[in-house]
Lab assay of single mutants.
Amino acid sequence: YHADPSLVSFLTGLGCPNCIEYFTSQGLQSIYHLQNLTIEDLGALKIPEQYRMTIWRGLQDLK
């Protein structure tokens, strides 16, 4: 799967570019796929713990 530029820029902007593959490997290719994820969902996606809160907060800021 290839990540949408919106996803790449979002995660890169948060300092988490190495997390892109965790999302794309589950078929979550764009920022729209991420918008309703919970902190528990990020854990289920195996996002490293040190990035989960950062990503979750970033998603809240998009709403």
Score class of each variant (00 low, 15 high):
Y1Q: 04
Y1F: 15
Y1S: 14
H2D: 07
H2S: 15
H2G: 07
H2Y: 09
H2E: 13
A3H: 14
A3S: 15
A3V: 15
D4N: 05
P5T: 15
P5F: 13
S6R: 11
S6G: 15
L7T: 05
V8C: 11
V8A: 14
S9V: 03
F10M: 02
F10H: 00
F10N: 01
L11P: 00
T12G: 14
T12L: 05
T12S: 08
G13D: 13
G13C: 05
G13S: 12
G13L: 06
G13K: 14
L14Y: 03
L14H: 04
L14Q: 03
L14M: 05
G15H: 03
G15K: 08
C16A: 05
C16S: 02
C16L: 07
C16E: 01
P17Q: 14
C19F: 12
C19I: 08
C19G: 02
I20K: 04
I20Y: 06
I20T: 10
I20V: 11
E21C: 04
E21D: 11
E21I: 05
Y22K: 09
F23K: 00
F23S: 00
F23L: 04
F23I: 03
T24P: 02
T24Q: 07
T24N: 04
S25E: 14
S25Q: 13
S25C: 11
S25M: 08
Q26G: 09
Q26D: 04
Q26H: 12
G27Q: 08
G27Y: 01
G27E: 10
G27K: 07
G27V: 01
L28G: 03
L28K: 11
L28E: 04
L28W: 05
Q29C: 13
Q29W: 05
Q29H: 14
Q29K: 13
Q29F: 10
Q29T: 13
Q29G: 10
S30T: 14
S30P: 01
S30N: 12
I31F: 03
I31T: 10
I31S: 14
I31L: 12
I31E: 06
Y32P: 09
Y32W: 11
Y32N: 14
H33P: 06
H33W: 02
H33G: 09
H33M: 07
H33I: 04
L34D: 01
L34E: 01
L34R: 01
L34P: 01
L34Y: 03
L34I: 11
Q35T: 07
Q35E: 11
Q35D: 14
Q35K: 14
N36G: 11
N36I: 10
L37Y: 13
L37S: 05
L37N: 02
L37V: 05
L37D: 01
L37P: 01
T38C: 07
T38Y: 02
T38L: 05
E40T: 07
E40H: 10
E40D: 08
D41E: 14
D41Y: 02
D41R: 08
D41F: 01
L42G: 01
L42H: 02
L42V: 06
L42T: 02
G43N: 10
G43V: 10
A44F: 11
L45I: 13
L45E: 02
L45V: 10
L45N: 04
K46R: 13
K46L: 07
K46I: 03
K46F: 05
I47R: 00
I47N: 02
I47P: 00
P48M: 00
P48R: 02
P48T: 03
Q50C: 14
Q50K: 13
Q50V: 12
Q50P: 05
Y51Q: 06
Y51R: 05
R52W: 07
R52Q: 10
R52A: 07
M53F: 06
T54F: 03
T54Q: 12
T54I: 12
T54R: 12
T54W: 05
I55S: 01
I55T: 01
W56C: 06
W56D: 04
W56N: 05
R57L: 08
R57M: 03
R57C: 04
R57W: 06
R57F: 15
G58S: 06
G58M: 00
G58L: 00
L59N: 01
L59T: 05
L59W: 04
Q60V: 09
Q60I: 12
Q60F: 06
D61F: 02
D61T: 10
D61W: 06
D61S: 09
D61I: 11
L62Q: 08
L62C: 06
L62R: 10
L62N: 13
K63L: 03
